[in-house]
Measured scan of single mutants.
Amino acid sequence: KEWNEKELQKLHCAFASLPKHKPGFWSEVAAAVGSRSPEECQRKYMENP
């Protein structure tokens, strides 16, 4: 399903605030978004950083 504005906001906010070198980075991003898997978050971010 399409990403909504709130999900995208959470994605970018989590990406900006979490340490990128940490193992499980995308899992933490997904936990912050709440409604998406780590894979979905990574794919979406890579599509549209």
Score class of each variant (00 low, 15 high):
1 K>L: 01
1 K>C: 07
1 K>A: 01
1 K>Q: 04
1 K>V: 05
2 E>H: 07
2 E>L: 05
2 E>T: 07
2 E>R: 06
2 E>G: 11
2 E>Y: 14
2 E>N: 15
3 W>H: 02
3 W>V: 02
3 W>Q: 02
3 W>L: 02
3 W>E: 04
3 W>K: 03
3 W>A: 03
3 W>I: 02
3 W>D: 03
4 N>D: 08
4 N>I: 04
4 N>F: 03
4 N>V: 03
5 E>N: 08
5 E>P: 12
5 E>S: 07
5 E>L: 08
5 E>W: 06
5 E>F: 08
6 K>P: 05
6 K>S: 14
6 K>A: 15
6 K>Y: 05
6 K>M: 05
6 K>Q: 05
6 K>T: 12
7 E>P: 00
7 E>Y: 00
8 L>M: 11
8 L>V: 04
9 Q>N: 07
9 Q>G: 06
10 K>P: 00
10 K>I: 10
10 K>D: 11
10 K>F: 05
10 K>S: 10
10 K>N: 06
11 L>G: 01
11 L>M: 07
11 L>F: 03
11 L>E: 02
11 L>P: 01
12 H>P: 01
12 H>W: 04
12 H>K: 07
12 H>E: 12
12 H>R: 08
13 C>T: 15
13 C>H: 14
13 C>L: 12
13 C>A: 15
13 C>M: 15
14 A>S: 11
14 A>R: 02
15 F>P: 02
15 F>H: 15
15 F>I: 13
15 F>S: 14
16 A>Y: 03
16 A>H: 01
16 A>T: 09
16 A>K: 14
17 S>N: 14
17 S>R: 13
17 S>G: 11
17 S>Y: 06
17 S>H: 12
17 S>W: 01
18 L>T: 13
18 L>N: 10
18 L>V: 13
18 L>Y: 08
18 L>A: 11
18 L>D: 06
19 P>A: 12
19 P>E: 14
19 P>L: 03
19 P>W: 04
19 P>Y: 06
20 K>F: 03
20 K>S: 07
20 K>N: 11
20 K>C: 05
21 H>Y: 11
21 H>S: 14
21 H>D: 15
21 H>P: 09
21 H>G: 14
21 H>F: 08
21 H>Q: 08
22 K>N: 15
22 K>I: 05
22 K>R: 11
22 K>C: 10
22 K>F: 05
23 P>M: 06
23 P>L: 10
23 P>A: 14
23 P>I: 08
23 P>Q: 14
23 P>K: 09
23 P>W: 05
23 P>C: 11
24 G>N: 15
24 G>P: 03
24 G>T: 14
25 F>K: 04
25 F>V: 07
25 F>T: 05
25 F>C: 04
26 W>I: 03
26 W>Q: 03
27 S>Q: 14
27 S>G: 12
27 S>R: 12
27 S>K: 15
28 E>V: 05
28 E>S: 08
28 E>P: 00
28 E>C: 08
28 E>A: 07
28 E>M: 07
28 E>F: 06
28 E>H: 12
29 V>F: 00
29 V>N: 01
29 V>A: 03
29 V>Q: 02
29 V>H: 02
30 A>D: 02
30 A>H: 01
31 A>C: 05
31 A>V: 09
31 A>P: 01
32 A>D: 06
32 A>R: 11
32 A>Y: 08
32 A>I: 13
32 A>F: 08
32 A>Q: 13
33 V>E: 01
33 V>F: 00
33 V>P: 01
33 V>N: 02
34 G>C: 04
34 G>V: 05
34 G>H: 06
34 G>R: 08
35 S>C: 11
35 S>A: 12
35 S>G: 14
35 S>W: 04
36 R>G: 03
36 R>H: 08
37 S>I: 03
37 S>L: 08
37 S>Y: 03
37 S>T: 09
37 S>C: 05
38 P>H: 05
38 P>K: 12
38 P>M: 15
38 P>R: 08
38 P>E: 13
39 E>F: 06
39 E>N: 06
39 E>R: 06
39 E>H: 10
40 E>P: 00
40 E>K: 14
40 E>I: 00
40 E>V: 00
41 C>S: 01
41 C>N: 01
41 C>E: 01
41 C>K: 01
42 Q>P: 00
42 Q>I: 08
42 Q>W: 09
42 Q>E: 15
42 Q>V: 03
42 Q>G: 02
42 Q>N: 13
42 Q>M: 07
42 Q>A: 07
43 R>C: 08
43 R>G: 11
43 R>K: 15
43 R>P: 01
43 R>S: 13
43 R>Q: 07
44 K>Y: 13
44 K>N: 03
44 K>E: 14
44 K>M: 12
45 Y>G: 06
45 Y>C: 14
45 Y>V: 13
45 Y>W: 12
45 Y>M: 14
46 M>E: 14
46 M>Q: 13
46 M>D: 10
46 M>F: 15
47 E>G: 08
47 E>V: 03
47 E>A: 10
47 E>T: 09
48 N>A: 14
48 N>Y: 09
48 N>H: 11
49 P>E: 15
49 P>C: 13
49 P>V: 04
49 P>N: 08
49 P>F: 10
